[in-house]
């Protein structure tokens, strides 16, 4: 049961990450243009967020061992995501307009500005969502000889969620929904995960013990 809940949890986390990456690429286009570098920055910045989230999330899991710890992080990430359409447009404008208007933007900044934009808008929620995978591995693993199986399951479910996120957002959401609606829905999904983490905590209590071999 615990394994199933953890797997579903990281599935939804992985889904949200890729919806943010794909819808985000379209979102940044109005400010940075239809440039190739939008994709470079979306992919690169989100991978940085994942790497940091994995590393820090793993350490936090060993230290706190409670699912409730995730709730405030997810609440912040969820609210942040819901409000992307409200607070990010002036920030992105500031990145573009900080260059003198009478001169062309240098080739270097044409490449790096979209990465600044990606970082500002998408780093935080993706970082928090990346924490979920190592955290769930720690919560769901009971015995040392299961760690391989559990971590494999968690990796796989998170990745399958991401795959779904890519295709659903690219093939369906972009056609049917506006970008602000997509961000609001994704933010709401992350808030749901925050609530689920509280429920998990109540259900598991203090049952995360030191791993036994």
């Amino acid at each position: 049961m615990l394994k199933t809940v953890a797997a579903g949890f990281v599935f939804l986390g992985g889904f949200a990450i890729m919806v943010l990456e794909i819808a985000g690429a379209r979102y940044l286009t109005k400010d940075f243009g239809g440039s190739f570098y939008i994709w470079i920055s979306q992919i690169g910045v989100i991978l940085i967020a994942l790497a940091l989230g994995y590393a820090i999330g793993g350490a936090l899991a060993d230290h706190f061992k409670r699912a409730a710890f995730l709730a405030p992080l997810l609440a912040v990430a969820g609210l942040f995501t819901m409000l992307i359409p409200n607070f990010t447009p002036p920030l992105l404008q500031a990145i573009v307009m900080r260059h003198p208007l009478d001169r062309e933007i240098s080739a270097l900044w044409q490449k790096l500005d979209p990465a600044l934009g990606s970082t500002l808008v998408f780093f935080l929620p993706c970082f928090v969502l990346a924490i979920l995978s190592p955290y769930m591995i720690r919560l769901a693993a009971r015995r040392l000889e299961q760690v391989g199986t559990i971590s494999g399951l968690i990796y796989a479910c998170s990745t399958v969620g991401s795959i779904a996120g890519v295709f659903v957002s690219g093939y369906v959401l972009i056609d049917f929904m506006g970008l602000s609606a997509i961000f609001r829905a994704t933010g709401a999904l992350i808030l749901v995960l925050a609530v689920v983490s509280l429920l998990m905590d109540r259900w598991m209590g203090n049952s995360v013990e030191p791993l036994k071999s």
Binding site: K30, D31, F32, G33, G34, S35, V96, M97, H99, L101, E104, I105, Q110
Partner: peptide
């Protein structure tokens, strides 16, 4: 000739 994205060019010009 400007090497630039069309929309960003419109937005930044006067």
């Amino acid at each position: 000739i400007h090497q630039h994205d069309g929309r960003t060019f419109l937005q930044r010009g006067r």
